[in-house]
Design a protein around this nucleic acid. Sequence first.
DNA 1: GTGACGAATAAATCTGACTTTTTATTCCTG
DNA 2: CAGGAATAAAAAGTCAGATTTATTCGTCAC
Lengths: 233, 233
Amino acid sequence: MSTTGRGLHGRVLDTLGPEITAGEYPPGSVLRTDELAQRFDVSRSVMREVVRVLESMHLVESRRRVGVTVLPSHEWNVYDPQVIRWRLAGADRPRQLRSLTVLRSAIEPVAASLAARNATAEQCAELTECALGMVANSRGHKLEGYLFHDVAFHRVILTASGNEMFARLGDVVAEVLAGRTHHDVMFEDPDPAAVTLHVQLAEAVRARDAARAEKLTREITEGALQELDILAP
Amino acid sequence: MSTTGRGLHGRVLDTLGPEITAGEYPPGSVLRTDELAQRFDVSRSVMREVVRVLESMHLVESRRRVGVTVLPSHEWNVYDPQVIRWRLAGADRPRQLRSLTVLRSAIEPVAASLAARNATAEQCAELTECALGMVANSRGHKLEGYLFHDVAFHRVILTASGNEMFARLGDVVAEVLAGRTHHDVMFEDPDPAAVTLHVQLAEAVRARDAARAEKLTREITEGALQELDILAP
DNA sequence: GTGACGAATAAATCTGACTTTTTATTCCTG
DNA sequence: CAGGAATAAAAAGTCAGATTTATTCGTCAC
């Protein structure tokens, strides 16, 4: 599941990254590569590679004579999947989940509308298959099976939109849905209304009905917002 | 304007990154660290740092014994501001601009709706100030002045939404607007209708009229889509 | 033809020395 | 005492060489 797992530098990153995104070092804190290298028992070269990556994520800034300065959170590359994962694993997970759900509510309706125009026959088939999988797992506490098909469904929609920016949000949606199932809400079977909406959405896309696809998706995302007690815009 | 300018490794990145995002190395191409270090006349350490950063952007994958493999474009972190800038500077700039404009059309209406609820008095003031600036620069080929206020306007909206994911798209919107002014369309003064919409949007936000703010923004982004000959969803 | 073993190879890592830049301090001068 | 220039120090930046490790590919036996 972890992306950077391999390599010495990846292991250091998996420790230091979450620490920073968790806010353990307040903005403006100064870290020194030498100390960090000593702490993690790696060479300075490896530590410098780690710092470079953190720098490319705008989590820190490295300046000569000063050290490695932690940047305020509004500078962070919050779209970096790695950063998203680190933050979802940390303390402000609820806040993060809300932000991402609002993002979904903006993106997915438009993506669905585009998918209704651009989806291939194969993608339409995948969509109905996923919807059927959701139906099949919607009762009897088969949450994992339901999640699997739910994630696949939304991934197909985003990909079928034909917009690469949308397509790349597949991982984000997957994280949000997984988070919802595993931690926050949904102790029992999913809302039957939501399942129905997915089935209808698959139909709408197959029928090339962009307006209907958009409207149905809006209902789905509004449901997601309500689950988190967010007022629908 | 460049972010990575400082340091030897930054200069190498500014050459190699654009080359990769421009598709000069087809997916699956293998680069070797040693050769690259030789080519750029830097040490392997520097080259390794560069490769690590490219790897964190999912532009390449580094595996032992194999080398540095270029990944297909659907793997890239297309939300990384650096990657966006590289791609906008490259050959498929038009395609990139379209993707980003569609993204804007999804995000900004929702952001405006939220801004109408959450904007502070100060942000409302900034908004009207920007709108006035746009009006003042809307005639007489004062394109740079117009662009400046246009960018500031949309930045305030995104920030005032209170959603950090939206706020971080300020740079993207800035790039898109700048690209439109400097290269593609808009040879003469901006559309007066667009200017009016911005003024009205500032008013709507100040009046806390979320629905109106959303609708007005939708009209603005639809205009942007039409300029690029994209059918409005 | 399949499987296992081993050698070659290229990246990954470590080490330690040297360089450069930036900041702070000191000291000289007005 | 104040201002500014020279100086020192600190930390990142750079480099080259030695070592380690994992993967691939060829060979050989079964």
